[in-house]
Design a protein around this nucleic acid. Structure first.
Length: 263
DNA sequence: ATGGTTGCTCTGCAA
């Protein structure tokens, strides 16, 4: 069983890369973030033709999350309990989708960016993570044997060595103590961040900005992670970050992260 | 050359 997460940065502009990824990497489940499309315009047909089912939520050109699966999709939720609204009028954004695939509860998560520490979006980000902590802790408390994956774009770099140059982020978001505390708090619910357990090397990135020649200079960030429940951690045999997916014309700014699960 | 983005949608916004 292979489960991946990928901030695709527009599913319509990268549908060919997505289909090639599913085939080449023999993926059973793919959690997508930033699909940037409303539900009605999601390109479902090509995934169905490839043998996958689709669960998606998208309300506008922003955000949008999906779970693509060839091992079934059940009990779809398009937000988690307590997920805070944002904007005017305030609304729950398309940033979380839960679906059960072959007995594994997969959550595709797109944590708010935060923008600037003085921006209301930053407080929203912290509240969003806080509510996710409460909700996810509850899921595991209700069933300690549950197999749960919380995967996606967390928009937090937990360590200074998760970025090319911490000084670049002075006064910016993603590295602040409140963000890191909110990210680490997910552990209190009983989850462990499994990608670093298998890939502990410093400066192992999952994202390179389109600007400033970030990829050629390897000015990257590690902000895509997978927290898994104890039962799922026990079954996880490996993690792969597909760095090569950042190469070439038409790449997303993020690359996929794959979990190998023993059946 | 001292810079060097992309996508959605429509001209500015978000990342």
């Amino acid at each position: 069983m292979r489960i991946a997460t990928w901030n695709i940065n527009s599913v319509r502009s990268r549908i060919d890369r997505a289909l090639a990824l599913l085939e080449r990497e023999d993926l059973d489940v793919l959690a997508l973030q930033e699909t940037k499309v409303k539900d009605a315009a999601f390109p479902t047909a090509p995934f169905l033709e490839a043998g996958y089912q689709v669960a998606h939520t998208g309300h506008s050109q922003w955000n949008g999350v999906a779970v693509i699966s060839r091992v079934g999709i059940a009990d779809v939720e398009t937000h988690f309990a307590g997920q805070p609204p944002f904007g005017d009028p305030a609304a729950i954004e398309a940033r979380a989708l839960g679906a059960t695939c072959a007995g594994i509860r997969v959550w595709s998560l797109y944590v708010p960016n935060g923008r600037e520490v003085t921006d209301p979006h930053y407080a929203y980000k912290l509240e969003w993570l806080s509510q996710l902590q409460a909700a996810s802790a509850g899921w595991l408390a209700a069933d300690p044997s549950a197999r749960i994956a919380l995967m996606g774009d967390w928009n937090v770099a937990p360590l200074d060595t998760d970025v090319w140059d911490p000084s670049f982020f002075t006064g910016k978001t993603h590295l602040t103590a409140p963000e890191r505390d909110a990210f680490a708090a997910i552990e209190r619910g009983g989850y462990q961040e499994i990608t670093r357990r298998f890939l502990p090397a410093e400066h192992t990135y999952t994202y390179w900005d389109y600007q400033r020649l970030s990829f050629p200079k390897n000015s990257g960030m590690r902000i895509d992670f997978a927290y898994v429940s104890p039962a799922l951690a026990q079954q996880t045999a490996g993690v792969t970050i597909l760095r090569d997916e950042r190469k070439g014309k038409g790449a997303s700014d993020h690359v996929p992260v794959i979990l190998d699960i023993q059946d």
